[in-house]
């Protein structure tokens, strides 16, 4: 789809939530095949970072440069709660032109749930459904916000496998999670390392 290889570059990024500066001077560059694990305590700014990288919010300072389409997984599924899972996912598969929707649902062990309305799904099942949406999008860049939360051990291993496959195929994955993932060659940084010092925060505010 895209002419140039995918890339995701953050340059001197700073974000705040409300009046509080969460992190600053955050720079990284992800090339094709790169996986990056962002760690940090709750409220440290992982979700804020992901939303800024996705271009959904404007960072307080710095720039995000991105080459290639982007898929986002966060705590919101984007799936209609009243529709059966199969139809709800079919909307996104249709929008994304994903032909192998059935195969994706089988891979995420969702095929038995196709007739169940989304609102009846458990947290882990919803998470897997959202992952199916991400897979169907076939975007070269993945932003996964807490992809492991609510998942059982088998599903957690599946997420690691999906990320491995994605990166092996030349994709980029940035994963914000406080749980470990089994992806070889994955880089990692803690978002707290970029949190402003107390004195500096007052100066910036």
């Amino acid at each position: 789809m895209q002419a140039s290889p995918p890339s995701l570059i953050a340059d001197n990024l700073a974000c705040r939530r409300g009046e509080r500066l969460l992190f600053r001077r955050l720079s990284f560059k992800l090339a094709p095949g790169a996986a990056c694990h962002v760690t940090g305590a709750n409220g440290a700014g992982k979700t804020t970072l992901i939303r800024a990288l996705a271009g959904l919010t404007t960072p307080y300072a710095g720039t995000v440069t991105r080459e290639g389409a982007l898929a986002l997984l966060d705590e919101r599924t984007g799936l209609d709660p009243d529709l059966p899972l199969g139809r709800s996912l079919a909307f996104w598969f249709g929008v994304d032109g994903a032909a192998e929707g059935e195969a994706i649902m089988t891979r995420l062990r969702l095929d038995a749930l196709a007739e169940v309305p989304v609102r009846y799904l458990s947290t882990g099942q919803k998470k897997r459904a959202a992952l199916a949406r991400v897979l169907g999008q076939a975007a070269p860049i993945w932003l996964l916000d807490e992809p492991l939360s609510g998942l059982d051990t088998a599903s957690q291993a599946l997420v690691s496998a999906l990320v491995r496959d994605h990166c092996a195929a030349g994709g980029i994955a940035l994963i914000a999670s406080h749980q470990p993932l089994d992806v070889p060659g994955m880089t990692s940084f803690a978002i707290e390392d970029f949190a402003p010092a107390e004195a500096e925060e007052e100066e910036d505010a």
């Binding site: 996705a54 986002l72 919101r76 599924t77 799936l79």
Partner: peptide, 12 residues
């Protein structure tokens, strides 16, 4: 908005 539906469309 709560569903993140518009966000997903925006990404597309």
């Amino acid at each position: 908005i709560e569903l993140g539906f518009f966000d997903q469309l925006k990404l597309r």
